[in-house]
Design a protein around this nucleic acid. Structure first.
Length: 627
RNA sequence: GGGCCUAUAGCUCAGCAUGGAUAGAGUGUUGGACUUCUAAUCCAAUGGUCAAGGGAUCGAAGCCCUUUGGGCCCA
């Protein structure tokens, strides 16, 4: 138990007091107090004001007196605040022991929400025709962070990456290679995914604009691509897998791993669509339209004002949403699994085996489906995702089984757009792969790494290159991941190249620096941290504040998981670092002549490090011992 | 025309789900703190009719309604 212990104790006592006063049960809050108002506070008196026909001020005094007669382990005293709040002061010698000894356990912060059940998280899902740009990174980092949080709350998480290897975007680069003379080997050792995106894709789409007769070539290529047996399809497979390899390299560099790669081309060829199409007809979830503008089409009826959505066109071809329906149903385990699974040859950051779907082979023992599915896609796809969510609910009659986790897009600041050659009149600009208007993830990582290498060299002239490289890697990835996660999912991130290189304030380096400082204290102390210390010696405000923050880890994890809100953990890491830095300035750990006090403080410093390490791990950020 | 998101300090954002105390950070600007456990830090000052209007409430940044600005999706 952690800080939650004292909250529960207070809740129970207050409930008993209510029974005592024979007042009907009401749902009052008991929560961490604002600074300056004790440790815990409750709004209970406000809620009783009507019932008891007294002012909150009077009631809180009555409650405060009553409380002093209760058995309390962790509460030292109560305060009837004139505002009407009932405030509690903790017995820190006991609470510190409780929190700090818990924080030394490997399981600290574990919460059981998932009950060891399966859950699927799908993220990334980028067309394999270009390098990942900074907008994709938001998806990837959100998805990866949510996966880590879900694992912490006792879900068995399967992470999927959907490879959309059969659409128009892929057809476009194939046209580039086959018809416009692009060499299959990139020039000057350029990374293949960058070459396809920056050169082949952008220049091919430019040519379409100049010559509309090329549209025919494009259409034919797409058709051949979708026919699995053609030479073009085989060539497409070769190219997209090479691009994918480049994309995965970027992801792994960001500390992101997957469990399975699902290829769209195989989903199409697996026959899943025709199976679910029949079921949807049987269940009456789709209808054949006899008249109107959608005559001869199969449609999903729109809810209320919504338009009907065409699923199968009058010429018999399935629309784009039709591909998503069997895939969603497959993820939920609602269809017989048509896939065999092969190992993808790679060493991932978490050392887990990466599998990929295949339509032939032997291994069928893998299962990547779950009763609960989270799909991370930006909110521009909300309409489509809503249709799928509603359809899946009707299909398996389980509410909330299919969750679309949406987020707003990443745009470019006008300054950054300008450096890419686009004048925007001071406005932010939407990124576009087609127009070549984007900032690639690899380039941002590289710039950050260079800057951090310089900064580290300035501070540590004695360090070896390999040590500096390790720090630069950890801090650069941390910086990028933190920027992508720290704000709310429904706020647009305006990416500015210059500002993204900032390493001060509310950034990952700030947090990582606190860890490095703490590590240094532990290293220099010559004491092995232990929880066999006198906790009552920790009395300074900055010490108690740090302990309190450490004790809030569990509740923050719970909050983050329940709301799929990765930023909650980001803010928590920042809070921890702020508390620690304040402690660092106010209290000199190693200066003390008092050995008992020194040991207690070392215990606290180590507790901070252990907790921050776990919290940062949920964000996929590592904590360097020096920087 | 319909739908979704958004508006809080000069700038970037927390807080809003579950209404109560003094609306918090970062950044910027100004000043201060390194012979000390690492100054990627800390301290102080500065800065807010919480977009506007209305409603319900003892009480609203938060809830309801209307309007406006910005972004996106569909038609």
């Amino acid at each position: 138990m952690t800080f939650q212990s004292i909250i529960e104790e207070i809740e129970n006592n207050l409930k008993m007091i209510l029974t005592d006063l024979s007042v009907p049960t009401i749902s009052f809050t008991v929560e961490v107090a604002k600074p300056g108002f004790g440790d815990v506070s409750s709004n209970i008196a406000f809620l009783l004001a009507k019932e008891m026909k007294k002012s909150p001020k009077e009631i809180t005094q009555i409650l405060s007196e009553k409380y002093s007669q209760c058995v309390s382990e962790l509460v030292l005293k109560t305060e009837a605040h004139p505002s009407g709040y009932l405030n509690f002061f903790a017995d820190w010698s006991k609470l510190s022991e409780l929190i700090l000894s818990q924080s030394y356990l490997d399981t600290f912060g574990d919460v059981d929400i998932g009950n060891n059940s399966n859950i699927v998280v799908e993220h990334t899902s980028v067309n394999p025709n270009k390098a990942l740009h900074i907008g994709h990174i938001r998806n990837i980092v959100v998805g990866d962070t949510v996966s880590r949080i879900l694992a912490k709350v006792n879900y068995k998480v399967n992470v999927l990456n959907y490879i959309d290897d059969s659409g128009l975007q892929v057809a476009d680069i194939i046209v580039g290679f086959k018809h416009f003379g692009f060499n299959e080997e990139p020039p000057n050792g350029k990374k293949f995914d960058h070459y396809c995106g920056d050169d082949v894709y952008v220049k091919t789409t430019q040519k379409y604009e100049l010559d509309s007769s090329l549209e025919e070539i494009r259409k034919n290529t797409l058709k051949e691509l979708e026919d699995g047996n053609s030479e073009i399809a085989a060539f497409g497979d070769l190219i997209t897998r090479k691009v994918l390899a480049g994309q995965l390299q970027t992801c792994w560099n960001l500390n992101v791993s997957y469990d399975c790669l699902n290829f769209e081309s195989q989903i199409i060829r697996s026959g899943l669509w025709s199976k679910i199409f029949e079921k949807l007809k049987e269940m009456g979830l789709i209808e054949f339209e006899n008249e109107g503008k959608n005559a001869q089409c199969w449609v999903i009826r729109g809810d209320g004002n919504e338009e009907d959505k065409v699923i199968v066109r009058s010429n018999g071809t399935a629309t784009y949403i039709a591909k998503d329906i069997p895939y969603a149903a497959w993820k939920l385990g609602l269809l017989d699994d048509p896939f065999y699974y092969q190992k993808y040859d790679a060493r991932q950051p978490n050392c887990k085996t990466l599998w990929q779907t295949s339509l032939n082979g032997e291994n069928t023992n893998q299962n990547f489906t779950a009763k609960k599915v989270v799909t991370v896609i930006d909110s521009r796809q909300e309409r489509l995702q809503k249709i799928i969510t509603v359809l899946m609910e009707k299909f398996n009659s389980t509410p909330d089984s299919y969750v679309h986790l949406g987020y707003e897009s990443v745009t470019l600041s006008s300054d950054t757009a300008k450096t890419l050659g686009l004048e925007t009149d001071g406005k932010q600009a939407q990124m576009s792969g087609r127009k070549g208007l984007y900032v690639s993830a690899d380039s941002v990582c590289e710039l950050l790494k260079q800057k951090i290498t310089e900064e580290t060299k300035k501070r540590h002239s004695e360090m070896s290159d390999s040590e500096i490289e390790k720090i630069a890697q950890s801090v650069s990835i941390g910086t990028l991941r933190y920027e992508m996660i720290k704000q709310d999912l429904d706020k647009i991130i305006t990416f500015d190249l210059a500002k993204s290189l900032s390493l001060e304030g509310d950034t990952a380096p700030y947090i990582q620096y606190a860890y490095a400082r703490a590590s240094r204290i532990l290293e220099k102390s010559g004491i092995t941290p232990s929880i066999d210390v006198d906790f009552s010696l920790l009395r300074e405000n900055s010490e108690l504040d740090l302990i309190k923050t450490i004790g809030l880890f569990n509740s923050q994890v719970r909050d983050a998981a329940n709301n799929f809100a990765p930023k909650v953990i980001a803010r928590y890491c920042h809070d921890l670092a702020v508390s620690f830095n304040s402690f660092y300035e106010h209290v000199k750990v190693l200066d003390s002549d008092n050995d008992a006090l020194k040991s207690s403080r070392i215990c606290l410093v180590n507790s901070f490090n252990l907790t921050l390490e776990k919290a940062l791990d949920l964000l996929g950020i590592s904590a360097p011992h020096k920087m």
